[in-house]
Write a protein that binds this DNA or RNA. Structure first.
Lengths: 144, 144
DNA sequence: GGGTAGTAGTTGCTTTTGTAACTAACAAGG
DNA sequence: CCTTGTTAGTTACAAAAGCAACTACTACCC
């Protein structure tokens, strides 16, 4: 066996992460897509607003590392669905504060419930220690 | 604090995985993109062929869980770049065996070297135990 | 206060992906 | 052989994402 082959694809982190992420995302996508006709970015925006409260599109871009055009389009879609509203700030009219409408709030809570269930189910195959550890490591990588 | 907020976005696996995967993939993408003008799927195909030897497009689809149209297009692109060649099998002409050309082989080896370096760099921030564990868990999730 | 630079967000155009319908080849039962 | 069903791979069309140029606004500095 030559030296070059002692490196398995499955040892390569970007590959492994992508694979794992893809599997899980597609699973969960079915839920918000079928239930609310939402796209992945829209779901992320709802989650950010639901979890962390009102903020600007820029804030979402920075926190979630999503490109601004993607966020812009997601916001418009969510506005059309009446899941969120925007409010221009008086002190700086470039900023618009985004927040969930009561409907959006209900959507968020419903999906949060699903997320919890899904998360529990997936992680149940690991010990509590393993689960905590992997979360820690992933958070660290995500913040690179 | 209400009950609904004791669930942090950062505890939600699909979200966390996506974030981490995105960060790493984009990093590594720069390398194969700038150096060989390859797309993500093309890179994956090259890696599969380089690591596991000749196989059909279907095999790649199954092993890497990539949709057949994506693979089909990646194969054509790689063929145009002269990184791989296809060979129809005589016993069943629906199958075509894909394999790297000498050029493709060199590309694979070059990128493999980069992958190793990159992987080592990223994982250096974790202990060997942590690193091994996270790989184990990710492999398990990816195989769901 | 007018020019320059920088920021938030949007839009138009291009590239990439997803979906579903298609071709071509084989397999198996009658 | 010929119909029916299945599989590998492609292609046409639609949806989504990326990129770059644009508008509208603010901030700073002379």
């Amino acid at each position: 066996m030559t030296k070059k082959n002692d490196f398995d694809l499955k040892d390569f982190m970007p590959y492994l992460l992508n694979q794992a992420a893809e599997v899980m995302s597609r699973d969960f996508e079915v839920i918000y897509r079928s239930r609310y006709g939402m796209l992945r970015t829209e779901w992320r925006v709802v989650f950010h607003l639901g979890r962390y409260g009102a903020m600007t599109a820029k804030d979402i871009c920075d926190r979630a590392r999503i490109h601004k055009t993607k966020v812009s389009r997601a916001v418009r879609a969510l506005e059309t669905k009446r899941f969120l509203r925007r409010e221009q700030q008086v002190n700086d009219r470039r900023h618009e504060s985004l927040s969930l409408t009561p409907t959006g709030q209900r959507v968020f809570e419903d999906l949060l419930k699903e997320a919890r269930t899904y998360d529990k189910e997936v992680m149940s195959q690991f010990s509590d220690g393993d689960a905590a550890q992997i979360r820690k490591v992933l958070i660290q990588i995500a913040q690179l």
